[in-house]
Write a protein that binds this DNA or RNA. Structure first.
Length: 670
DNA sequence: GAGCACTGC
């Protein structure tokens, strides 16, 4: 491909440079649609592709205990299937649950279906997500996050309130969905054994990788639904691109000069930094576009941007990498890369790395171009490279820490968690590491080779938190600092409450300086939270202090929820006031697995895995070099960094787990 | 002296 060391003038991007090759073998995927916004709602329902299939669908669904439903976006399956079931009396008098991986989807779908049924939300149709329950005794169609159904299963493992469970967006394979697969399958079997009302399970997915689903659910039949996708033209590069960012830049300008201005371009990229850099370059080049070329509006879009900015109206170019729903996209540029987390069970380390997308992801990205009308997708890789992509993204359950999953399964009374019937089994090492972690925390115990939940473990499971956080909260009454620990855990379980625009670095440092505690990041966060509460969550205060008020308010919600659980468990809630040493003692006892020791050469050794780690420069302890710390997480980027550190005494760690540290010390010597 | 994709309970 053409390449200039200097930022090339716009002329270089004139149409005609043969960059893409048309792929004639893969024409548009599905049928066009006719849309009309003013059509009455019941007519709209009948215009959906799924409506034609309604009689056969109902016929099948009435008989089957399990069904796999494959339908593209726009087939109407998520809004219609629950209504069809209800209208046909299938599953009465029980409740039909429809799970979603994301909150917004659960909420908006419930709203849409309530509208279609002409009822008030929360009556016949409702939703349940964390912090929000809009259901009543009348609710028969209940949209919920999969995590929420999982939590409900703790009190009701057979899911007896439900006659039908619809697992939607199953192709996303989130941890929660994958665990739910096993939970509903178990509930189905147990209900049959106990002669209870049968449970119908419908798995809905957008992809064609159905064998796995079908096989898992006792070879259940697969029903296909026609979608509503418009034709999409796929283009590939002639040659592999060594620099996908450069390729994206060229493609953007090529399309911009050829396309009508009302057609937006969507570029899939891997992260904030990349997006900001490309946005800057595009804007610079756009200033020097030749006369007659329409102006270009560049909108960077990523999750950590404040929501107001995400909602801005855009005209021509969007740079984006999330799964946000945006309409009016005509052109998609797919870099073929994604940033994803990988997990190493041996080191307990999560690595965030840029890697190639899967075929499924590539098709999903392409699909974004055909929502409203026909579109084009430019893949910045060759067709051969596409053919070599892995078919499906590795399910999250195979690349995450399983501690909370294992704890959850045990709470559900699953007899043999080590051999749980996962659709895609995580590695035995990952399972073993998780159980060992729980054992160290005292959540499980081994008796004659069998693993069982302890009373402490049962309490830990009642918190929607990682086990070590739950443990720390449960320890906090012993140190008379539950209020502080609740705040700290809440602060750690949301995205950063600190706002760090790199352009205003000096101001940020000055503003945050007054909160800094020499005891570490946890206490610093606590100082910020205390100050925030003192001014009553004042937004102006947040702005002045570079504090993210949205996340801060989320902290308040989380804390309220955790406090509620503490009260149910009759934990004593009290504040230690200025005795912050108590808080650090408590953190040391709860987080002892994440401890590190200063070495003579100035580096740190993580005591659990004996790997060399460093203090992340964002920590307030970066220059302090304390002898012992506990940290919140390890992040492997350019080095292995500890993030969110708390200064502790060696004695506290030894006191927390004498046997464990005895073993670790022994390991150091040998 | 770095820079963290997206969810969810």
């Amino acid at each position: 491909m053409p390449h200039d060391p200097e930022p090339p003038p716009a002329k270089k991007f004139k149409p005609g440079s043969v960059f893409f090759r048309l792929d004639k073998n893969k024409p548009g995927m599905l049928l066009p649609r006719k849309g009309n916004v003013t059509t009455p709602i019941d007519v709209q329902r009948k215009q959906l592709p799924i409506y034609q299939a309604k009689p056969q669908l109902l016929n099948q669904l009435r008989q089957l205990h399990n069904a796999i439903l494959i339908g593209e976006t726009g087939s109407g399956k998520t809004t219609q299937i629950p209504q069809y079931l209800y209208e046909a009396g299938i599953g009465r008098p029980g409740v039909i649950a429809i799970t979603q991986p994301r909150r917004v989807a659960a909420v908006s779908l419930a709203g849409r279906v309530a509208e279609e049924k002409r009822t008030q939300l929360g009556k016949l149709v409702g939703y349940t997500v964390r912090f929000e329950d809009v259901t009543s005794s009348e609710t028969k169609l209940k949209f919920m996050t999969d995590g929420m159904l999982l939590r409900e299963a703790i009190g009701d493992p057979l899911l007896l309130r439900y006659s039908v469970v619809v697992l939607d967006e199953a192709h996303e394979r989130t941890v929660h969905t994958d665990v739910l697969f096993g939970v509903v399958k178990t509930a189905q079997r147990r209900r049959r054994e106990l002669n209870k009302i049968p449970l119908k399970v419908i798995v809905m997915s957008a992809t064609m990788d159905v064998d796995l689903f079908s096989e898992y659910f006792n070879k259940s039949p697969v029903l296909y639904l026609e979608g509503r996708q418009h034709p999409i033209q796929i283009y590939y590069t002639k040659h592999p691109q060594s620099d996908y960012l450069q390729a994206a830049l060229i493609s953007v300008f090529q399309i911009h000069q050829e396309a009508p201005p009302s057609h937006d371009i969507l570029v899939f990229m891997t992260g904030q930094e990349e997006i900001e850099a490309l946005a800057r370059t595009c804007r610079d080049i756009a200033k020097h576009l030749p006369d007659g070329c329409s102006p270009m509006v560049v909108i960077p879009l990523y999750a950590s941007l404040p929501p107001a900015q995400q909602l801005r109206v855009f005209q021509h170019l969007i740079l984006l990498y999330t799964s946000l729903t945006i309409s009016g996209i005509k052109y998609v540029i797919d870099t073929g890369m994604v940033k994803a987390k990988r997990f190493n069970p041996d080191s307990g380390l999560e690595v965030l790395a840029v890697q190639r997308v899967s075929k499924a992801q590539a098709w999903q990205r392409a699909g974004r171009a055909g929502r409203e009308d026909s579109g084009s997708c430019y893949r910045l890789y060759t067709e051969q490279e596409f053919d070599n992509l892995i078919p499906m993204t590795v399910p999250e359950i195979q690349r995450c820490n399983l501690a909370s999953v294992m704890l959850h399964l045990m709470t559900l009374g699953i007899p043999d968690v080590m051999n749980f019937d996962f659709m895609s089994k995580p590695s035995p090492e990952a399972v073993r590491a998780a159980v060992e972690h729980l054992e160290l925390l005292g959540a499980v115990e081994r008796k004659e080779g069998q693993v069982s939940l302890t009373a402490l473990g049962k309490k830990m499971a009642s918190f929607p938190l990682e086990p070590r956080y739950a443990k720390t909260i449960l320890l906090s009454p012993d140190y008379c600092c539950s209020e502080e620990v609740l705040s700290i855990v809440s602060l750690l379980s949301v995205d950063s409450v600190l706002y760090n625009p790199p352009a205003r670095r000096e101001e940020v440092l000055a503003a945050h300086k007054k909160f800094i505690s020499s005891e570490g990041d946890h206490m610093t966060l606590l100082n910020i939270y205390r100050a925030f509460k003192k001014v009553g969550g004042n937004k102006e205060w947040c702005r002045e202090n570079f504090v993210n008020s949205r996340n801060m308010n989320l902290v308040k919600e989380v804390q309220a929820q955790l406090r509620e659980i503490c009260l149910k468990l009759s934990l004593k809630l009290e504040s230690c006031g200025s005795e912050t040493g108590n808080v650090r003692r408590c953190l040391a006892h709860g987080m002892f697995i994440n401890a590190a020791e200063l070495q003579p050469d100035g580096s740190y050794l993580a005591l659990d895995t004996h790997q060399s780690v460093a203090i992340h420069p964002s920590s307030v302890l970066f220059q302090a070099k304390p002898a012992y710390v506990v940290f919140n997480e390890l992040l492997h980027t350019s080095r292995c960094y500890m993030r969110d550190l708390c200064l502790v005494d060696a004695d506290w760690l030894l006191d927390a787990a004498p046997e464990y540290f005895g073993r670790k010390l022994h390991l150091t010597k040998s």
